[in-house]
Design a protein around this nucleic acid. Sequence first.
DNA 1: CTAGTTATTGACCGATCGTTCAACCACAAG
DNA 2: CTTGTGGTTGAACGATCGGTCAATAACTAG
Lengths: 191, 191
Amino acid sequence: MPRPREFDPDLVLDRAMELFWAKGYEGTSISDLEEHLGMGRQSIYGAFGGKHELYVKAMDRYMVTGSSGRKCLLDPDAGAEEIREYFKGLIATVTQEPRRSCMLINAAIEGDCEHPAVAGKCTDNQQNLTRAFRHALDGAIAKGQLDRKTDTNALALSLVSQSFGLNVMARNGTTPATLSKVVESALQVFK
Amino acid sequence: MPRPREFDPDLVLDRAMELFWAKGYEGTSISDLEEHLGMGRQSIYGAFGGKHELYVKAMDRYMVTGSSGRKCLLDPDAGAEEIREYFKGLIATVTQEPRRSCMLINAAIEGDCEHPAVAGKCTDNQQNLTRAFRHALDGAIAKGQLDRKTDTNALALSLVSQSFGLNVMARNGTTPATLSKVVESALQVFK
DNA sequence: CTAGTTATTGACCGATCGTTCAACCACAAG
DNA sequence: CTTGTGGTTGAACGATCGGTCAATAACTAG
């Protein structure tokens, strides 16, 4: 019977996620990971396979633990208020210092999305967010907060675009107050 | 008197811009630049100083030659139509294969924005675009295409966010048709 | 206890990174 | 022509990259 592991895989993945999130894929070296994860190279390779495999697994971990923000959108009774809540949380997240945009946006821009597994997660994320918005928008119509004739699919996509854009604007140093004005303006479709 | 240069600095900067734009700062090596620019390392260092200096100068070049898209917004008579035109051009640009998002967005996300000179250009770009949108929006109000009570500053910021978001969605493989729906939805504020 | 299996450790691999050194070369002033 | 100035060339620098090898340590089944 083998020698037992000295670390908790999930905890280590969280640490790896932090590092990849903060520094990007190419910007993170194995040495960085050794230090931040508190384990030797060979242990990393033995447990996760390699840098890119670890990156992909860290992205999986991110999608589980990090995307809890849109949970409110999926509330069965979600409507305009939940959408406002989502953006409020998003602004708080992306303006925390040091500023870091959504890891999946980073991946898409960094060009790591050329790798099929990474690209798939990026598009999955976009589609999940679109669906969540559409759900809440349909709820908003049911509540009379939105014009019944609204194309909720198109509007959902537009809100996804807004979400992504807020990430970029935050990286450019835009203040939370200004970002709130952006959201306010975008959400004037509600009565 | 010295030996004359064998290259055209502006032309070389254009080539450098292409490469940094396509592969990012960290993803571009000096060897790549040697090949793509058709000159030796020492000539590059002699003419531009170093990789990062060259990158900054390539960004300057990008802001001059690459941001011609928003020119239409600055038309003195600009209004809703020019804003539609801008987005139409943007979608065409970001969905060209191979897909590449705005170089300044890449810089902001890649984290090169930590460098003051780069960060400054990113925020400058955002402010320039905001001003251009506001100008066109004010024009739209004057033309009766937009509610007079609209906060054009906030709406301009929202359109900036949409622009940035479109770049990210395009990188995620979103089709031009879908991106057009996003814009259509966002521009329903016009009558 | 011994034997067997796997995690851990640290040194090391070739490749590539950004940068620099030294020799060479092309041109204009004299 | 000679001379000097600065662009060009190619080799080389130390550092770091991602990845691997061999030896050691920790544990359990018997």
